[in-house]
Simulated scan of single mutants.
Amino acid sequence: MGVAVRTADERDRELVVRLLDEAFQDDPVSGWVFPDPAQRRATHPKLMAAFLDVVLAEGRVDLAEDGTACALWLSVPAHAHPENGGEGDGEAEQGDDAAQLREAVDPENERVELIGRLTAGIHPSGRAHEYLWMIGVAPDSQGQGLGTGLVQSVLDRCDREGVAAYLQASSARSRALYERLGFALLERPLDLPDGPQMWPMWREPQA
């Protein structure tokens, strides 16, 4: 499916935050981070905004022209750890980033910090790659191929340039989508404490 795409900027911030919030309100990982539905409705947008601000500053946000889907990408050099805004390779720096995320989003919620630490801990290093941090599709537009269309153009470029890609699937449904796009499970799933699994997935460039 062809999707008309443009690069989002600060002027699109409110739109993209709303899109990500709506797309991930019922996501298993979001439900684990914010188990109380009222708390999730109130605070989840702040987490999405924090993630978006990192990518607007350091990466690229692809936005469907009609505003129904977006994808957040970071180009990660070898030996870097991009989670939570830090591209240093030290464990202390990753921990600082996660703690700052918690302080900015929900200081009383340790899971905001924990999700940052855990995802940073499984992010592969050693090879440059494109990191699909998040992809969100408006609930009314899901199941129409928008996510695939939005991601495929970047994967086509990865194939042309011989660059790998990485992501963390947060649901079985999204894992199946990414498998169809050529991603494969990297080692083993991440088991969130008393919560759902996440699937770190890697895609080698394809001929």
Results as ranks from 00 to 15, higher is better:
79 H>I: 01
80 A>Y: 03
80 A>D: 13
81 H>Q: 01
84 N>R: 00
85 G>T: 02
87 E>A: 06
90 G>V: 06
90 G>F: 09
93 E>N: 00
94 Q>S: 10
94 Q>D: 09
95 G>M: 07
96 D>G: 09
97 D>W: 00
97 D>Q: 07
97 D>E: 06
100 Q>L: 02
101 L>Y: 06
104 A>L: 15
104 A>P: 05
107 P>N: 14
108 E>G: 14
109 N>V: 15
109 N>K: 12
109 N>W: 15
110 E>V: 09
111 R>I: 13
112 V>K: 00
113 E>W: 01
113 E>I: 08
113 E>P: 03
114 L>R: 14
115 I>F: 04
116 G>F: 11
119 T>N: 06
119 T>I: 08
120 A>D: 10
121 G>W: 02
127 R>N: 12
127 R>P: 05
128 A>T: 12
128 A>N: 05
128 A>E: 04
129 H>L: 10
129 H>F: 07
130 E>I: 04
131 Y>T: 06
131 Y>I: 00
132 L>M: 03
134 M>E: 01
134 M>L: 15
136 G>P: 01
137 V>W: 03
138 A>E: 09
138 A>K: 13
139 P>S: 15
140 D>K: 15
140 D>F: 10
141 S>V: 07
142 Q>L: 11
143 G>V: 11
144 Q>R: 15
144 Q>W: 02
148 T>Y: 14
149 G>D: 15
150 L>S: 10
152 Q>W: 02
152 Q>I: 10
153 S>I: 12
154 V>S: 04
155 L>P: 03
155 L>A: 11
158 C>Y: 04
